[in-house]
């Protein structure tokens, strides 16, 4: 068996990419964020519009709307969260596997919005950690896509290896 191929081989140049495992994992992750569409109110319609033909969320790898929390990565809270719904939202969030993210879509989910009343939770961030807030009542589908890109940026900077230390700090990379 010939073992000299380990060194430089001009035949496979361009077909092999060297990268760090962290970067590779974030690249995989950020291009297939499956949403859990928590369509609660009006924003849910814009969420549907973002998924439908014109705005086509699948360009960002997020067309796989999973109504089962166990199969999803990002929860898009679209709409007014009432106190009656709050525990259910929280329960669904807890059923999502790690790593998981949350987008608060619209004024109601971000802050309670125009519903300052006895029945409305004043922002979903009181019960969940939110990664991206989208303004608007409701936000346009473009705004949701922008939020998705923001989240992709965030994911690409996250560290995924167990001890959460950059490779540089662990002395594995020289330069």
């Amino acid at each position: 068996m010939n073992t000299t191929e380990i060194g430089y081989n001009s035949k496979i140049e361009g077909n092999v990419v060297h990268t760090r495992i962290d970067n590779a994992v974030s690249w995989f992750r950020k291009n297939s964020i499956w949403p859990m569409p928590m369509g609660l109110a009006c924003c849910g319609i814009e969420l549907m519009a973002a998924g439908a033909s014109r705005y086509d969320i699948s360009r960002f790898g997020s067309e796989v709307m999973r109504f089962s929390p166990r199969q999803s990565d990002v929860m898009i809270v679209a709409g007014t969260v009432t106190y009656k719904m709050a525990i259910a939202v929280r329960r669904i969030y807890e059923q999502m596997p790690e790593p998981k993210w949350v987008i608060a879509m619209g004024a109601c989910a971000s802050s309670g919005g125009m519903y300052r009343s006895y029945a409305t939770l004043q922002g979903v961030d009181r019960i969940l950690p939110v990664d991206v807030y989208v303004s608007g009542c409701p936000p346009r589908p473009e705004a949701l896509l922008e939020a998705l890109m923001k989240l992709q940026d965030k994911i690409s900077k996250e560290l995924h290896i167990k001890d959460k230390k950059p490779a540089r700090d662990r002395g594995l990379v020289l330069s």
């Binding site: 609660l40 709409g79 259910a88 009343s117 006895y118 029945a119 409305t120």
Partner: peptide, 11 residues
């Protein structure tokens, strides 16, 4: 029902 009761009538 009531999971989207936002208190419109009170408002």
């Amino acid at each position: 029902i009531g999971y989207l009761h936002r208190g419109d009538e009170k408002i």
